[in-house]
Design a protein around this nucleic acid. Structure first.
Length: 724
RNA sequence: GCCGGAGUGGCGAAAUGGCAGACGCAGCGGACUCAAAAUCCGCCGGGGAAACCCGUGGGAGUUCGAAUCUCCCCUUCGGCACCA
């Protein structure tokens, strides 16, 4: 992996340069270098010390192809490995975890203040899956309690049975002898199903389950209700057991109908409709009033939820509780190529962290890494055997490596001081640069990388290394350019198109323009080189314009006809490009540049081409083109007598030049309502009222009492007035 | 099933509630050329000789005015999916 990785890095660095990307290579580093991953290990040790990293046994996802465990986030729909696409299943193993659940509330609430696409925020909210409700204790004949979590404590009077997950630890204890055989058979059945393939977990799947023979007592009405086990109750969520209220929960209803269990209405909807437990075909989950609930009859739903929580709490029969779908992040991998987890196992002292001054624990470069189901490092004797940092006796190193997502969870801080040797990064420098103002990436990072990165930022904050809560203030997702056939580009399927041949054929500028002009940046779509000739034509026309007229004789502006329109056009183009650039609307930004060029081409042989305003227009065009066509702009700029180089690391002065030109924004009113702001070039004053109209008598009427100050020139020939 | 996008010419797509189709591609006509390419000029949603009429997935509505806002459908793409 080492030489392969470095070859790839060199290849990609070359391609970035080829494409004209302006990157400060002096800050480059590789996450697979010990100088970087030693700080993964250092952060791990800080987390271990704070109880944020821990080792635990449990059911974990296993990929039989990669021969390693995976995090929940890396298992895709249909139980597929995120990396290789193989079917994965659960195994009981002891592994390392990061306690991301400790930050669940903060990870959820923090989303509200981020300028991120709603789609991404929604996905994170769903993934964290916070539910507010109550924990209730149902007592068992054995004297113990069966705890359940519910979001609807107001339906507790309608609980007619209970259901436990088959894996629930109390199941065997409460099962009666008469039912034991049936229960064991069912547990066996569900376990096998889980391990092989539990694909269709949708609600339409028929409910299965068996009676345990045991009963529990409802804490609010002392009713004895039967306890069942069923695989629709998941051990991994809530307490692994539920109170079933068939009248008001769709799944419980389906189960009750399947096994002929009683249905009791405890909420009646407002209005004429009255629920009948015998004839109803669906659970009722809407609003209404509580019934059959003793002293709570008549309480309006859904306000009833908080009423019941308060009462249960006061009576000591339950308490408010919040649960999450989010699980802790499983970080151990049985892979070779990753950061070694810096702990050792000593026969005398047990698990001992490697001390900070012994970092990094270096990954050997000569291991056999073919997957065997065991960590490859187990068979590397020189790595495996070490001495215990505490007692000095013989010890074995941890041979699992860290999930590679650990590397990407804090790397941007390292960019601020990439060669720092005494810490992950220089704290003061990082404070100046971070949080990241704008972060771009694909939607595939919506949960995995972006959730882990947010978690790490909060951990680093608590360690005292950063002073903010969120790593990325603004996030935008680029669309993916697909292959010509509309599928993801892939090397193995031969659908990949690399930049080398395209740059050779069309040049980097035309390729860049074409990619941005294909459609909205956030949308993506199939690759297609049909329109690229249009971009070549545009670049050539712009270049021709500047070289032919850029330095010709000037006679000042005088009263040359059309001088106002020329200035206005330039200013409007600046406005459009600036706004579009800000909003990531590169396709319309380029359209504006093409329009500007086309108009200048029409004027270039006339008297305007000898004015000072024309020189300014040439400079404007060149500056505006610089971000999208760096090479052409470099040439054009030098024709105008202001040379710079694309690959020099300072951005050209055009940013300052752009900032010098400003348009005035004034409020637009239509029918007395403010409809937003319209940018007009200098002239209209703030406070002027601009009415926007067509040749529409109704609208013109509204302007009747007002004084028309002046007409405003706008490109689309609408009739516009500035009125007071 | 739930949540969220999207649906506009031959194609990629534009459009604060205000001339639908900017810009580009393709196509058609012309200039230049022995010819072709390149370039330049013009046309380019549908119907109609024209005035004009019809057009933004379908149907209602709000509005002087709707691709845009509201409601109901259809199609499609994502995400979640027995989470109590």
């Amino acid at each position: 992996p080492a030489p392969w990785t470095h070859e790839n890095i060199a290849q990609m660095r070359r391609q970035y340069d080829l494409m004209g990307a302006m990157i400060d290579w002096s800050r480059e580093f590789a996450t697979c270098a010990p100088e970087f991953y030693r700080w993964n290990q250092w952060i791990f040790l800080q987390m271990l010390e704070r109880g944020l990293a821990y080792r635990a046994a449990g059911a974990v996802w296993w990929c039989p192809n990669d021969q390693t465990v995976l995090a929940n986030e890396q298992v895709l729909e249909g139980n597929i490995c995120e990396r290789c696409g193989a079917d994965v299943y659960k195994r009981d193993l002891e592994q390392w975890y990061f306690r991301i659940t400790q930050y669940a509330d903060e990870l959820l609430d923090g989303l509200d203040h981020l300028d991120w696409p709603d789609r991404v925020k929604t996905m994170q909210r769903n993934w964290i899956g916070r539910s507010h409700g109550a924990r209730l204790r149902f007592s068992l004949d054995t004297g113990e309690a069966l705890e359940v979590f519910t979001t609807r404590p107001d339906t507790v009077f309608g609980a007619t049975f209970m259901v436990m997950a088959p894996e629930h630890p109390l199941v065997r204890q409460i099962t009666t002898d008469a039912q034991r055989e049936t229960v064991e058979a069912y547990i066996d059945h569900t376990r096998r199903e889980t391990e092989i393939e539990r694909q269709s977990t949708d609600e339409s799947r028929p409910k299965t389950g068996v009676f345990t023979g045991a009963y529990a007592v409802n804490p609010v009405n002392d009713e004895r209700i039967p306890i069942w086990i069923a695989d629709y109750v998941l051990m991994g969520y809530g307490t692994g057991a539920i109170m079933a209220v068939p009248a008001h929960d769709e799944r419980d209803f389906a189960f009750a109908r399947a096994f002929d269990l009683p249905v009791r209405i405890v909420i009646q909807p407002d209005g004429d409709e009255t629920l009948d437990p015998v004839t109803m075909t669906h659970a009722y989950v809407g609003p209404g009033r509580m019934v059959n609930s003793g002293r709570f009859d008549g309480t309006p739903v859904p306000e009833s939820i908080s009423t019941l929580i308060a009462w249960l709490d006061e009576q000591g029969r339950g308490s408010a509780e919040t649960t999450y779908r989010l699980r802790d992040w499983l970080i151990s991998r049985q892979r070779y190529w990753g950061t070694p987890i810096p702990v050792v196992y000593c026969d005398a002292c047990g698990l001992v962290p490697v001390s900070e001054d012994q970092l990094p624990v270096v990954l050997p470069l000569d291991a056999q890494f073919t997957p065997t189901g065991q960590s490859p490092l187990v068979s590397h004797e020189a790595f495996l055997h070490t001495t215990c940092p505490t007692c000095g006796g013989p010890a074995r190193r941890e041979t699992d490596t860290m999930d590679t997502f650990v590397d990407s969870s804090w790397y941007w801080y390292r960019y601020t001081s990439p060669h720092e040797e005494g810490a992950p990064f220089d704290v003061e420098t990082a404070k100046q640069w971070t949080p990241v103002d704008l972060y771009c990436g694909g939607i595939e990072h919506a949960i995995l990388h972006l959730l882990y990165a947010r978690f790490f930022t909060k951990v680093l904050r608590d360690i005292g290394l950063v002073d903010h809560d969120e790593p990325f203030t603004r996030l935008r997702n680029q669309g993916m350019i697909l292959s010509t056939e509309g599928v993801k580009m892939s090397k193995s399927r031969g659908t990949q198109i690399g930049p080398d041949s395209l740059v050779e054929q069309y040049g980097a500028d035309a390729l860049r323009l074409h990619l941005m002009f294909l459609g909205p940046w956030e949308q993506g779509g199939p690759w297609n080189d049909r329109g690229i000739t249009g971009m070549e034509r545009f670049i050539r026309r712009a270049f021709q314009l500047v070289s032919e007229t850029g330095t010709s004789h000037r006679e000042g502006d005088g009263d040359t006809h059309g001088i106002g329109e020329l200035r206005s056009l330039a200013h409007r183009t600046i406005k459009r490009v600036t706004d579009d650039l800000d909003k990531f609307q590169f396709n319309t930004m380029i359209a504006a540049l093409i329009e500007f060029t086309n108009e200048l081409m029409r004027l270039k042989d006339g008297p305007l081409a000898r004015t000072t305003a024309w020189t300014e227009a040439m400079e404007t065009l060149t500056l505006l083109m610089a971000p999208s066509t760096p090479y052409a702009a470099e040439e054009m700029w030098s024709r105008l007598g202001k040379p710079y180089s694309v690959h020099q690391q300072t951005w050209p002065t055009y940013i300052e030049e752009l900032a010098a030109v400003r348009t005035v924004e004034i409020p637009v009113q239509v029918n007395g309502k403010v409809r937003g702001k319209l940018a007009v070039e200098a002239g209209a004053a703030e406070g002027d009222v601009l009415a926007l109209a067509r040749n529409n008598p109704k609208v013109v009427e509204h302007l009747a009492g007002k004084t028309i100050v002046r007409e405003v020139f706008v490109p689309n020939r609408l009739v516009n007035f500035v009125a007071k």
